[in-house]
Design a protein around this nucleic acid. Structure first.
Length: 536
DNA sequence: CTAGGGTTAG
């Protein structure tokens, strides 16, 4: 009773008054501790139970409590230790115990996916084991492994059927990989099984379509969810937001409030991000103020980040800087990065230097901001300063994380790094790109060599730009798809200025529509224009 | 007495 009332100390007092507690009461005590986040006491109780276990009374329930507690401890190796104790009392063959252990190995401080997989391969597997392992891969960004295991479950899983948990997990893997074709196939499966109404599966489908560039499909799936929760609504708002559809995002937000659900911390991140992507300054200001006053939610670093983006975009650079100075949370690198980016767009060198210096203090190894600052100098004609920063990058030995872009073709994902020659079609791709570049230059495209961070002459700089991953991916997709189909490219970093300009021109020249998902948002290129309005 | 897998931001 005390535990359920979140009063662990009273529970402990009552427990201590029992002269000879039996294993049932001891397990109840441990479970109560775990429920109230007292994971170490919970584990201690289990350890002493095993130590004094002469008659084999430590049962499945006690093991489950201990294992689920071990998944919440920040130290490494705790699950392994409990595993040994569980084995000592002969409970490691128990199906529930093994499944709980599987999850615990990959969570908490252990984070050992390899150990989880090893256990998975050895144990007797049921539907829960398969979905647990698939979910673990998906949550840790190992999309290919998650998809592979999902297929394996259906083919050689010993008659294990598809279930809601495995489906939402594998949809998450499609989302990360941007694998729309596979995602659609899974969605068909969802429809066949009548699981569209399931809030977990439905929300996963919504998020998958949004993040794979099909926000209209996301909306359709959204309407099919029977009992939408705060996550479903937030996903839909975020979906519209990342595509630059700010009004639609706000309409969904209104609908949500109309339905009686209270927005939470994350909902407001989605709302403010949507305002920021669409440049809705007044709406953004309104909801930023309302979240505190009407909903009692204190803005966190993410909300400030959205506001700095939004104000910066609207040329209110001083207000953005003022907001950073007055916020109660310590500004992080992303915050100064947002201001720095706004300075790039509005060519404010003075404030850019302030932002960059604060950024360097926080993260001196972040090569992206050196590039940004150097570009700002270069665009302002301050070549010496631009050069100084470039030298700094070299002497400090900072490497940009490798940029890559990917395109899905007939269900297979093709990955391109800068200057990649690993693709079997690479010769044709480069030849195609050269021809295209000629036509682009005739149409007025001039390579923006200011954004190349190398000590090279102009010609060499142009060839550096030519081989950018997004250009390779676009060229490959153009070569291999039919006129009229929309090309979808996914990039792991922000799309570069030159590629952004280039793709706009490509859509004009070819009459094709190109959608690029970068690390921040979607860019819908059509007829020579981009949905971001050149702000990103 | 107890317990195992899933979805939202960036």
């Amino acid at each position: 009773m005390y535990h359920h009332c979140a009063r662990p100390l009273d529970a402990r007092r009552a427990f201590d008054e029992i002269p000879a507690p039996n294993p049932i009461i001891v397990t109840a005590m441990a479970s109560g501790c775990a429920r109230n986040n007292l994971v170490y006491p919970a584990l201690a109780i289990f350890r002493s139970m095993v130590a004094s276990d002469s008659a084999g009374v430590v049962d499945e329930a006690a093991a489950l409590v201990a294992l689920s507690a071990s998944a919440r401890v920040p130290d490494r190796g705790v699950t392994g230790g409990i595993h040994a104790l569980v084995a000592k009392v002969g409970l490691d063959g128990n199906a529930s115990v093994a499944n709980t252990m599987l999850d615990a190995y990959a969570k908490g401080g252990s984070r050992d996916l390899g150990a989880a997989r090893k256990l998975f391969d050895m144990m007797e597997r049921d539907a829960v084991s398969w979905s647990t392992m698939i979910a673990l891969y998906a949550q840790n960004g190992l999309s290919a492994e998650a998809l592979g295991l999902y297929n394996k479950m259906l083919n050689v899983g010993g008659g294990i059927r598809c279930n809601a948990v495995a489906l939402s997990a594998v949809l998450l893997a499609c989302t990360h990989a941007g694998a729309i074709q596979t995602g659609k196939r899974i969605h068909n499966q969802v429809v066949r099984l009548g699981l569209e109404e399931n809030v977990y599966v439905g929300t996963s489908v919504v998020d998958m379509y949004s993040k794979c560039g099909r926000v209209e499909m996301a909306r359709k799936a959204f309407h099919r969810i029977k009992e939408k929760n705060i996550l479903s609504w937030s996903a839909m708002i975020a979906g519209y937001g990342m595509h630059g559809h700010g009004q639609e995002a706000l309409e969904v937000f209104n609908e949500m409030r109309g339905s009686g659900l209270k927005p939470n911390y994350i909902t407001f991140i989605s709302v403010l991000a949507a305002c920021s992507h669409a440049g809705l300054l007044n709406e953004g200001r309104h909801w930023y103020n309302a979240m505190r006053k009407e909903f009692g939610i204190e803005p966190g670093i993410e909300h400030y980040g959205c506001m700095v983006d939004l104000l910066g975009r609207a040329r209110c650079l001083d207000e953005a800087y003022g907001l950073i100075k007055e916020m109660k949370v310590k500004p992080d690198a992303a915050m100064w990065g947002a201001l720095l980016n706004a300075c790039r767009i509005h060519k404010n060198v003075e404030l850019a230097e302030i932002a960059a210096n604060r950024l360097f203090e926080l993260d001196a190894t972040h090569s992206g901001c050196y590039v940004l600052l150097s570009n700002i100098y270069a665009e302002a004609g301050m070549w010496k300063d631009a050069e100084r920063i470039r030298v700094l990058v070299k002497t400090r030995g900072l490497e940009k994380p490798p940029a890559y872009s990917s395109v899905e073709l007939k269900g297979k994902t093709h990955l391109f790094y800068v200057g990649d020659k690993r693709h079997p079609q690479h010769k044709e791709i480069y030849a195609y790109l050269d021809k295209l570049l000629e036509r682009m230059q005739e149409a007025g495209y001039a390579p923006n060599t200011g954004s190349v961070l190398h000590d090279l002459d102009e010609e060499e700089k142009e060839s550096m730009l030519r081989i950018h991953s997004e250009k390779l991916a676009v060229a490959f997709a153009l070569m291999n798809s039919v006129q009229g189909s929309v090309i979808h490219v996914i990039k792991n970093l922000r799309v570069c200025t030159d590629c952004h300009t280039a793709i706009k021109i490509i859509t004009k020249l070819t009459g094709r529509e190109i959608v690029v998902r970068d690390i921040k948002r979607f860019h819908h290129f059509k007829d020579g224009l981009c949905s971001c309005g050149d702000y990103w």
